[in-house]
């Protein structure tokens, strides 16, 4: 199925959890914040959060800045 992640269309496996998706991107779920269809998802919910077709996902994290 297709989701939109950070404005890019991405193919993901049916029924994949948010946590699994973040790990597959080689990212640390503890330092990435996810906004799913406009709602910030609590970190402890990542594992049980199953993504659906057409979802709009934003993955954000801290970077260097002044």
């Amino acid at each position: 199925m297709e989701i939109i992640c950070n404005s890019e269309p991405r193919q993901v496996a049916e029924g994949i959890s948010l946590e699994k998706y973040i790990l597959d991107l080689d990212l640390n779920p503890n330092t990435v914040v996810a906004e799913y269809n406009g709602q910030i998802v609590r970190r402890e919910d990542y594992a049980d959060y199953i993504m659906e077709e057409g979802a709009i996902l934003e993955l954000i994290r801290f970077v260097g800045g002044g």
């Binding site: 991405r10 991107l25 990212l27 330092t31 993955l59 954000i60 970077v63 800045g65």
Partner: peptide, 19 residues
């Protein structure tokens, strides 16, 4: 120390500053 927030670059995530 200050830090900024940015979208993750999916194609080249790079270093995680929090690590």
């Amino acid at each position: 120390i200050t830090v900024a927030l940015r979208r993750v670059n999916l194609n080249d995530p790079g270093d995680d500053i929090m690590s």
